[in-house]
Amino acid sequence: MSESLKGILEALVFAADHPLTASEIKGWLSQYTLQQINNGLNELKLEYREMGRSFSLKEVAKGYQFRTRSDFSAYVLQMYRTSPSRLSRAAMETLAIIAYKQPILRQEIEKIRGVDVGGILKTLLEKGLVRIVGRKNLPGRPLIYGTTNKFLEVFDLTDLNALPTLKEIKKLIVEEDGAGIPEISPQEDEDITQGGGPEHGENEAPEA
């Protein structure tokens, strides 16, 4: 691995405004093979990791991009004077359904969530996390939805195969406030929902 290739790769990734893929870089560097470029990127990634910098070279959406480490998020947010971008729980659930079930119709999403998702879909489309991939050959030619490259970028995924494995729910867990934890055998522990975020910390008295 020549030092000069690594330098070139570093410069390109540094100056780019999106994650650069090896094949994209290959388009500009015909003198190097895809293999060399891939190796170079990988070496750079390891080097940055070992350096212990506050940013690292991350592999997202099949490309490489410099990203700050999460330990420093508070400072960066302060600089931008913004609160972190957040999606509502409903939007996250809808997004998860689309991510795992794509290509999917709106009515199929609504069947799973049990509520209308028109407004949420619009938000997700506007945020560029979801896209229309086509129309289904059904009456009304309904739109088919899928996730975008930006979805992969935002959620730190190299590709859709990197999504966490969809688990079977074996048992329901109780509220996070720990009120009355049911018996859960240890081996079932990892299959139970962590509540996905019911934020309601209601202080209900136990059933009288």
């Binding site: 998860a96 688990k167 329901l172 962590q194």
Partner: peptide, 23 residues
Amino acid sequence: YMRFKEMAGELSEREVLGRDVFT
């Protein structure tokens, strides 16, 4: 429904761009 609630939670826990990590 619970499966996807759980997955939504897992996605939220990742290093989200614009919340945890920045370019």
